[in-house]
Structure formats: C-alpha cells, structure tokens
Computed example of a mutant assay.
Amino acid sequence: MSTTAPINTPDVNTPAPAVEVVGVSRVFAARKGDGVTALDNVSLTVAPGEFVSLIGPSGCGKSTLLRLIADLDTPTSGSIEVFGKPARQARIDQDYGIAFQQAGLLPWRTVAGNIELPLELHGVGRAARRARAAELIELVSLGDFSGNYPDQLSGGMQQRVAIARSLAESPSLLLMDEPFGALDEMTRERMQSELVRICAETKAAVVFVTHSIPEAVFLSDRVVVMSPRPGRIREVVNVGLGDMSGRGEDLREDEGFFRALSQVRDLLYGDETPSTPQGTRGVETR
C-alpha cells in the first residue's frame, strides 16, 4: 500500500518577520581598486516585537546595515524584506520609524509641531494630528512641554521628542542609530529605561545600533556582535533577561545581566577569527 508524504504548506497565521536580511553584501566603489566591502554575506532575522542590537568596532558596517534596512541605501547583493515586503515598499508604506544620534528637530516648530510633522507630510488632518501628538507627548513623559521649542529642551528631552516623532505613524518597527550616543551617562541610562517602557507599550520591533555593551545588553532580546570590516556577524547572543515590561533599573545588578555583558565583551575583545585582520581588537564602548 503506497502512502503519500504530507504536503508542507505555509501557516497563514504565522506573521512575517519584522526584518529578513539574506546574504546581504555592500561594496562601496573606490576610484582605484576593488572598492571597500562594508558588509559581507550578512543574514539576520528579527521577529515582530523583538529588540535586536547591533554592536561592533567602528567601521564594521552596523550603521550601513541599518541604512539598508531603512532603504536609505541599496545592497550590492542579497535581499532585505520588512514584514514580508521589499525594503523600498516598507519605506513607502511607513512600516518603520527611524531615529538617529542627533534629534534633528526643526527649531521653529514646537514639541507638538515636530511630532506632528510626519503626519502632516502624509496628509493627516489637523485634529487627528493633534490628538496623536498629544498621545505621544504623554508616552514620552513630556506633557508639560508640548508648546516648548527645541532650544528650550535638554538633550535627553530632545531625543524623547525624536522618538515620539518616529512613532507618529504607529510603525511596527523602529530603526535606531545610536540615539543616545551624545548624552551623558546618567541621562543615557534614564533614556534607556524610557525606551524599554515605550517598547513594552507599543510592542514595536527594534533594530538598535550602539557602541555601548551595557546599553545593548540592558535593552535587547538578542545582541548581534559584528566583526571588523568587512562586516560579518560573528555571533548572536541571546540575552535572556525577560520581557520588556519587567525590565527595571534593578536589572543592571542582575547576575544574568553581568553574564550577558561578559559574553558580549569577550566576543568583542576576544581573539580574532582567521578572516579578521590582526591589530583591530579595539572597540569603542562609549
């Protein structure tokens, strides 16, 4: 009696990954020679609602990878999808928000006006814009500053406005390139706690570029450790510190936090793989 093997069909109820990077390389042309390889055959999957940090030496391609996901640059080879769409379509559909190291606020617009800007550009009506801005101002704990201008805010407050603006269109993905890099250490830790709270409330997936090992561990579900140029994924560390909603300041004293911290540090400062040039062991940890 013959039997027929079951046909494996995709589960229509399984959500597409927030980010799917497959075999991506990025080579920048040079006037002479073969050019500079910033990324070499990188593959990475980020699940919906997952917080993933990219860390590695300066020049390892982590910001380049973020720009490729955001469709601000194009890979030389490989493919990138955001929620099952090509990166370009995801950008057109406003499926992600993005925040950089500099807040980039318009000095002539108030806190509320800066947050409303993406909505205004996409034709959202005034009443809906104001309601959404008010909601986000409360989310980032700036309720008393909605009418203030950027030069009346501290650096940390400006970054909160930038994060609120990146959330204006309710994206399911946040792309963040060292958003706290220019802040002092105390403000930076407060902003990390704020981001944890915001992510717990919005359930957005996050791809976060940083040079700080403690920051990467405190914030992340997984930390992607990258090698010096050409950028490759050396290893992915599962942090295992629990759900975002349960992460408080006491986590920084947790045994699991220090264990993950040591694991990431060892990967960054440890012996280079054979493909890694010697003499490039230094890494910024500001």
Rank of each mutant, 00 (worst) to 15 (best):
G59N: 05
V19K: 02
A204L: 08
E235T: 13
Q159N: 12
D151G: 00
R88A: 15
G56T: 05
P48S: 08
Q94D: 11
V283S: 11
V225G: 04
M1F: 02
E249H: 14
L117A: 06
I137H: 03
W108N: 07
A103M: 01
P230G: 12
G97D: 02
T273L: 15
S245Y: 02
G231K: 10
V217L: 08
G143H: 02
V239K: 09
R165G: 00
G35R: 10
A29L: 08
S141V: 03
G155Y: 08
A16Y: 08
C199L: 15
L54G: 04
P17Y: 05
Q102S: 14
V52A: 05
T14S: 09
P15K: 12
G181D: 02
G143P: 09
A70E: 02
N13M: 11
S172N: 12
S193E: 14
V24E: 03
I233R: 06
Q102T: 10
V206T: 02
E185H: 00
M191S: 10
A47T: 02
M1S: 11
V27D: 14
Q102N: 14
E20N: 13
A47S: 10
E50T: 11
P17I: 03
I213M: 10
M244H: 11
Y96I: 03
P57A: 04
G279Q: 06
D266Y: 00
V22I: 14
G84P: 06
D221K: 04
L167F: 01
D151I: 00
V161N: 13
R130V: 09
E178W: 01
L105K: 02
F180T: 11
P171Q: 06
D266C: 02
D184Q: 01
R188W: 06
A103S: 12
P15Q: 10
A99D: 04
R132S: 05
R197S: 13
L268Q: 01
A47M: 12
G78P: 09
L66F: 04
A182C: 07
S262M: 14
P107V: 07
V12A: 07
T202N: 13
P75K: 10
F28N: 07
F100K: 06
G270F: 12
Q101A: 07
T74E: 10
V217E: 03
V124G: 04
R109G: 00
A70N: 05
Q102C: 01
A162P: 03
T45D: 08
E249R: 15
T9P: 02
L139F: 11
A112T: 10
G279E: 03
S245K: 13
R132L: 11
L173G: 11
M244E: 05
H211I: 03
V196W: 00
D73N: 12
S2D: 06
L174D: 01
T37Y: 00
L68M: 04
G49K: 05
L39P: 06
G147H: 11
A99H: 00
E253F: 11
G78Q: 10
T187D: 06
P179E: 08
G156N: 04
V217H: 07
V36N: 01
K85N: 13
Q158Y: 05
R130D: 02
F218L: 14
R188V: 00
S172Q: 15
N238K: 08
A131R: 09
G181P: 04
A200N: 13
T64Q: 06
P150L: 02
I55N: 03
